[in-house]
């Protein structure tokens, strides 16, 4: 398969993607000199890595289910604590940003809405902010 991962292409500084001159973390995590698209790219990666870290813990925690009712129900009783709920809000933020920005990245990648993608990004982020607010209220108020 003639596959070339998209992140290995060579964008210029100030556009999205990793810097061609600086490899590794400094290549993509440095926000200086970047415009909105570059910040979206960084945040897309950070939220992706964060959600992946969460999913790792999630898989480990779910193994409690294999140990029967008392193990799982013990976890459920501590998962409603304010600290856990705060992490849940952070998780929902990560999912919303990564998912909504991903809609833009996918459409633009297939050549759609390329010219209006900045407006689309802003609109998606407004939707995300509203959804995050609703989710946060529900997380902290649900019985």
């Amino acid at each position: 398969m003639n596959e070339q991962p998209l992140e290995r292409t060579t964008p210029e500084r100030g556009t999205e993607g990793a810097s061609p001159r600086r490899r590794g973390l400094a290549g993509w995590a440095d926000p200086r000199g970047r415009r909105l698209g570059g910040l979206a790219f960084i945040l897309n990666r950070l939220t992706g890595l964060g959600v992946l870290l969460y999913l790792s813990f999630h898989l480990v925690v779910l193994s409690l289910l294999a140990r029967g009712p008392s193990a799982w129900d013990g976890f459920v009783s501590i998962a409603g604590s304010p600290l856990f709920l705060a992490f849940d809000v952070v998780l929902v933020f990560g999912l919303l940003f990564h998912g909504l920005n991903g809609i833009r990245v996918t459409l633009v990648g297939f050549g759609l809405v390329v010219e209006r993608q900045r407006a689309m990004f802003v609109a998606l982020m407004i939707v995300g902010a509203i959804a995050l607010a609703v989710a946060a209220v529900r997380i902290f108020t649900a019985g």
Binding site: P11, T15, G17, G38, V105, G109, V114
Partner: peptide
């Protein structure tokens, strides 16, 4: 040079 496919901000 506009950036990785799907993540280009400037067409």
């Amino acid at each position: 040079s506009a950036g990785p496919i799907g993540t280009t901000w400037t067409p």
